[in-house]
């Protein structure tokens, strides 16, 4: 697109988020968020539920326009770009949604190859690509099923197959392992890691699962209270003395992170709930 949408500075970074502020009504979700992702890197963003991780991801793919700041992905100023330019960027990007977000009126193979529609492939060719991508995520013989007929883990894998079907340069994953058993979680993490290491895809993963973060992250950033608290290598995070990060990675209920439990002073008994 036009030159003003290009970012001449930070040429080494594939994704640049600078001084980002987002709010919902009166409530600021992000305050002064700044980070970069280099080509081929795997960044994991961790944080508690409701810390604004998913909102940050939505800002990076242009699904929401923050109050102020800059988001530059693959050279495109996402916040100020036109729709066609954004769709052009989307052809280079894959997104794995938290609950899969598969189109439930389309069969699995149509879901997987949805992003290839503009390539003018025949149905047979699309099916072949679908089978190939499904094989990459360890699925066979599910091409003609509808998403409603799949288990949670299979849905996530189909969604991953769809996200990588058009060979994206950048892969965004929103909670790729939430709601899955430990083995399936590890398998999905493994797949994302493979994408990153073997195919050189730059990945940005949002998760609250610290095991996933350690496994796939080159760097881990922790989002807390609307800002990036720390951004470090997995080893750096493991060794950190920051009490908030320590509480999060150790998964303790008590500590500096504000919990919801303490504020509920009176819990109604079983009889009290009936009314």
């Amino acid at each position: 697109m036009t030159t003003e949408q290009q970012s001449p500075e930070n040429e080494s970074a594939l994704i640049t988020v600078r001084d980002l502020w987002t709010r919902f009504d009166e409530f600021w979700i992000h305050r002064e968020i700044t980070f970069e992702v280099r080509p081929g890197e795997s960044l994991v963003i961790i944080g508690g539920s409701g810390s604004g991780k998913s909102t940050l991801l939505r800002a990076m793919i242009g699904l929401l326009r923050p109050e102020r700041g800059d988001v530059v992905v693959g050279g495109l100023d996402v916040m100020r770009s036109s729709e066609p330019a954004l769709y052009e960027l989307m052809r280079r990007v894959g997104v794995l949604f938290q609950f899969g977000a598969l189109f439930d009126s389309l069969a699995v193979w149509e879901n997987v190859t949805f992003g290839l529609q503009d390539r003018k492939l025949s149905d047979a060719e699309r099916r072949r690509v679908a089978s190939e991508k499904l094989k990459m995520v360890g699925l066979r013989g599910v091409e003609d099923l509808l998403p409603g007929q799949l288990s949670g883990g299979m849905k996530k894998r189909v969604a991953l197959a769809r996200a990588i079907a058009h060979d994206p340069e950048i892969l965004f994953c929103d909670e790729p392992t939430s709601g899955l058993d430990p083995v399936m979680s590890d398998l999905i993490s493994e797949l994302i890691l493979q994408m990153n290491e073997r195919l050189g895809v730059t990945t940005v993963t949002i998760t609250h699962d610290i095991a996933t973060a350690y496994k796939i992250g080159d760097r881990i950033a922790m989002l807390y209270d609307g800002t990036i608290l720390v951004c470090d290598t997995p080893d750096g995070i493991r060794a950190t003395q920051d009490p908030i990060v320590r509480q999060f990675i150790e998964g303790r209920a008590h500590g500096p992170i504000r919990g919801e439990v303490a504020e509920e002073t009176s819990t109604p008994g079983p009889g009290g709930r009936a009314g």
């Binding site: 989307m90 977000a101 598969l102 189109f103």
Partner: peptide, 17 residues
């Protein structure tokens, strides 16, 4: 339903308006 299950967002990410 498509909106609340993020299917509409998914369309956007697949370069489809």
């Amino acid at each position: 339903t498509m909106r609340v299950t993020e299917q509409i967002d998914a369309l956007h990410t697949l370069a489809t308006n």
